[in-house]
């Protein structure tokens, strides 16, 4: 499968890249790792006339951990997230999740920016960014603006990002020291998107849950921040009734379509199971 023709550009700076986006209008697309975009171009589901490759923009490639403030450049690859010891110490859910994305070759190329900007509900990182309450920085012709991951996703493949904006960075505050986290994903095989997946971050003090946040992947047109599900845990000892309440609250907002992974009812059922397992694992990982 040979993709359609396009003109290739590799600008050296963010402002050059924005300039190209402005001059080409909506015939242009950004190329990060290309591991979502190239398969779509082979299928003619994307037919850009111009591709703007960000790989020469070195400022997009850094991981910064200052105290509890974490900033990820858009062009950091999934493999680089996994390899960062500073990240796995402060916020291990990024590593746990990355390891469940695709396979080693794809993680060497696929970027965090591409994963969250893509807007495919199957991507695993958006729900994690929602549960961490991350902020995306967008740079366009009128300068820079910040959008919360929780406000970014409109429906499948439609996001808050305008066509002439580049997502440059992802920022968030690391969860409190001693927190526990987990990302549980049901998939049919390596390289598959989730039938359903759930991420959990929580803190425990004297056996009582003091805070919790839960995100769900691939069970609706957008990632879901499961606010009520997490609220069901706070103030409890995360015993069976609390977990059951959290599962029910997550299942209540899951709205998956039937696909090759199974009928809607099955995928809602699996959503509950992923939430249950992620909560149990996060409690084990909490101090």
């Amino acid at each position: 499968m040979i993709p359609g023709s396009f003109e290739y550009h590799r600008p050296p700076t963010i402002s050059d890249a924005v300039g190209l986006l402005v001059s080409f209008g909506d015939d242009a697309l950004i190329l990060a790792g290309g591991h979502s975009l190239i398969p779509m171009m082979k299928l003619r589901m994307a037919v850009p006339e111009y591709l703007i490759d960000l790989q020469d923009i070195s400022s997009l490639k850094s991981i910064s951990v200052e105290g509890d403030q974490i900033t990820l450049g858009a062009m950091v690859t999934q493999a680089e997230l996994i390899a960062s010891s500073a990240l796995s110490e402060k916020c291990p859910i990024l590593q746990t999740t990355s390891l469940q994305i695709a396979d080693p070759q794809i993680r060497n190329v696929g970027t965090i920016g591409g994963n969250v900007a893509n807007g495919d509900p199957g991507n695993d990182m958006p729900a994690v960014m929602q549960l961490l309450d991350a902020t995306y920085t967008l740079v366009g012709p009128n300068g820079e603006r910040d959008v919360k991951a929780r406000d970014f996703y409109e429906t499948a493949y439609f996001t808050e990002r305008a066509d002439d904006e580049i997502l440059t960075a992802i920022k968030f505050t690391a969860p409190a020291a001693g927190h526990g986290s987990a990302y549980e994903k049901q998939k049919r095989k390596i390289g598959d998107y989730a039938t359903a997946a759930a991420g959990v971050v929580l803190t425990m003090a004297d056996g009582i849950c003091t805070s919790a946040s839960i995100g769900l992947t691939n069970v609706a047109d957008t990632p879901l921040w499961a606010e009520a599900s997490a609220a069901a845990l706070v103030g409890t000892s995360v015993d069976e009734p609390a977990i059951k309440a959290a599962m029910d609250a997550a299942k209540a907002i899951a709205d998956p379509a039937q696909d090759s992974r199974g009928p809607r009812e099955f995928r809602i059922h699996v959503t509950g199971i992923m939430v249950q397992r992620a909560i149990q694992q996060a409690v084990k990982n909490a101090q």
Binding site: Y8, G34, H35, I38, D53, Q55, A79, Q105
Partner: peptide
């Protein structure tokens, strides 16, 4: 120095 899948890399990216 990294394993990649050559069916999903454009010419320009490999330059």
């Amino acid at each position: 120095g990294k394993s990649v899948k050559a069916c999903t890399i454009f010419a320009g990216q490999a330059n």
